[in-house]
Structures are given as C-alpha cells and as structure tokens.
Design a protein around this nucleic acid. Structure first.
Lengths: 193, 193
DNA sequence: GTATTGTTTCAATCTGTATTGAAAACAGAC
DNA sequence: GTCTGTTTTCAATACAGATTGAAACAATAC
C-alpha cells in the first residue's frame, strides 16, 4: 500500500518519483496558502490536498507518512475537516478508519463560506447593536456640548450596522443561489453619508 | 481639541462620557474583528474605526491618544491603510499631518477584496501551473506501474487549476460590476470529476 | 545655519495560535 | 475479563506575525 517507496531502482524511475512528490508538495502548499487566507490552519490545507490527490481513501497513519505532520495533529485536523464537511469517513481498512476528500469543491467552498461568514457577520451585528443602544441612551442624557459629537458617532455606527445587515443578506442569498448581486440590496447601501 | 477629557465635572456627565467611549470601543472591536477575518491586522481596524467615528480629520498624535497604540504602530498602520486607499491624507493642522477615513465603505470593500483576492488567486494559479507542468513531464517518463497514480494526480491538479482560474474570473467580474454569478462560468465548474 | 517638533524605520519583544508528543481513552480480538 | 493496536486529548513548545520603543530621519520655525 505504500505506493511511492517500493521499487525505485533505476535513476530514471527515482527521478520520476521525485517529481511526482514534488508536484504533490507544490499543490499542497498552493492550496494550503489559499485556504490560509480564508483563515484555515495550514495543516487543514495539507491534509485535505493530500486526500484529494489520492486515488483511494487513506488511513490517518498514511496521512502522517505523506504529510509529515504529527499523529495528534492529523487526528485533530481530520476532526476539523469533517466538521466543515470537507472530508468524509470512508469505511475501514481492517481496523483502521479511512478518510476521503469531498470532491465537489464548489459546494465545499460555498458551504464553508456560508457558515463562516454568516457567523462572523452575525456576531458583528450583535456587537454593533449593543453599541448603538448605548449611544442612543447617551444621546438622550448628554449635555448640549456633547450633542454634536454624540449625534455624529451614532449616525456612523448605525451606518456600519446597516451595512453589516446588508452584507448578511447578501451572503445568505449568495450561498443559497450562487448569485451575489449588490444591486439587489442597493437601497440599504445608498450613500446617505 | 482633546474632546473627551476636558470638562467632566458632574457624575451624570462623566457617566455619559463613559458610555460614549465604551460605545466607541465596542464599535472599534467589532469592526476590528471583522476586518481581522479578512486578514487585516487588529490595529488597522482600530485606527480606521477611530477615524470613521471622528467628525473631523485627526492627527497621528490624536489617534495614539484615542486608541492607546504606540506612535510607531500608528504610523505604520496609517501607511498600510493609505496603501489600501482606506484612509486619506487630509491637509494639515499647523505642522501636523491630518488623516480621514474613506467613508464609502462599499467601494472600499470591493476594492480591497479585488486587490487581495486577485493577487492571492493569481499566485495560486502560477504555483498550480508549475505543478501541472511537472506532472505532465512525469506522466511521459514514468513506468507503467506509476501510470495510474500519475494520471490520477494530474487530473485532480488540473481540476484545481481550472477552478482557480474560474475563481479568478469570478472575482474580477464581481469587483468590476458588483455581480457575482456562478452560473456565468458554470462550464468551467461542471463536475467532470 | 541650528533647534524643535513631527514622522518613519527597524531590531527586539511580546502575544496569540498551530503543532507536537506523550499519556489517556477507546475498540476489537482473543 | 485482558491485551494490542488505534484514536483522541491536552499541557507544553515552537512559531509567526503584530506591536513596541528608541533611534534615525524629515520638515518647519527661528
């Protein structure tokens, strides 16, 4: 089962093996970096790519071998990846669990995007609502000298809140329909300062 | 010019000042975290929000005062923010430079999104092209026993490359037109494994 | 010109997070 | 039930990258 280290007698063959694993490494790094910019851990990129480039499901031990990550790290990373539905269980090889990569990359990306961004923006919305509430109260109790300042801040804070809500709607629609159109929510975005 | 620490005699007033600065802090944190998920440094979020919530342009010294960041940090952060066209120079107050926040948040977001994502994806495309080239060569020189493995890996790598290119097109169109429609590039995305 | 004030740079430090390694928990065979 | 091989957990470590603070640099005033 150890596909790459069995028979590499001739120099030609070993060079070929070399370039295959180099290519694997480059692909892993590229996708790893890309995922990294969407705040995934590098190890998630490495492990997913490793599975994606394997013609058959792999055991945790094989992934350790291939990626050079520690046993513990691979275990945790696989949990993360399964939680994002980006890796699936795939039966067993003897007593060892096997894993395979989700191959529908588009579905994967929209799903992950949806979960992550919606949660994030929702969280922002809640915090901003808290701030606006405070500011409203402040506006009613503040002295005349602070009025101007106060009104300005509350206006800007409300605007950020509206934008966040618009963003939430946008992300929600996009991740359902695969279409992301700023025109559809232009009213919320209109630039009344 | 030090708006928040001048006259806070009565307890009512000082409570009001308190809630104003609390609200400011909450807004700063929220937006900071949000920007953080798009890989901006926390200090960038803090400084931008600080400017956005100010009714007039601010000097670096005022920003230091308001955010509690160090002088050096504020200077570097302002450079970053100007590089992203998210903060503008705004004349001078005596001999001190002044800065103001870009207020067209939508323009700002699409611009930043465009720059960042396009660069990122372009970089991935280049790396994947390198890997595919290696794999093609490998395919031609490898032994029969490796053929299957090799063909599989190259197929998958090509698919990732195609997807990246599709993504690049998508981001490019979106950031020009404000419309992001997966249907428009469905051909590239079709799931021929 | 020099002095003074404001701004940028950069090596050192600090902080938050990913990864490790070893121990604990678990599952299946016997 | 115990034993063996596998998987998970978690405190300690290592790392990356953000922030600081002091020194170099620029600009303005005198």
């Amino acid at each position: 089962m150890n596909t790459s280290t069995e028979h590499d007698q001739t120099s030609k063959q070993s060079a070929a093996v070399e370039s295959l694993s180099t290519a694997r490494r480059i692909v892993g790094e590229s996708i790893g970096d890309l995922m990294g910019f969407w705040n995934f851990k590098p190890s998630m990129g490495r492990v997913w790519t490793c599975l994606y480039l394997s013609p058959r499901p792999m055991t945790a031990a094989e992934i350790v071998e291939e990626t050079g990550l520690s046993v513990g790290s691979v275990s945790m990373t696989l949990q993360d990846l399964r939680a994002w539905s980006v890796v699936r269980d795939s039966g067993r090889d003897g007593s060892r669990r096997c894993f395979e990569a989700e191959t529908d990359v588009v579905r994967m990306v929209t799903h992950v995007f949806r979960e992550r961004e919606l949660r994030l923006v929702q969280n922002t919305i809640e915090k901003l609502e808290e701030a606006v509430k405070l500011l409203d109260h402040h506006g009613r109790t503040s002295s005349a000298s602070q009025m101007l300042e106060s009104r300005f801040v509350v206006t800007r804070a409300r605007r950020l809140l509206d934008l966040s809500k618009a963003g939430h709607t946008l992300i929600d629609r996009f991740s359902r329909v695969g279409r992301f159109d700023i025109g559809a929510i232009r009213d919320k975005l209109s630039l009344r300062r």
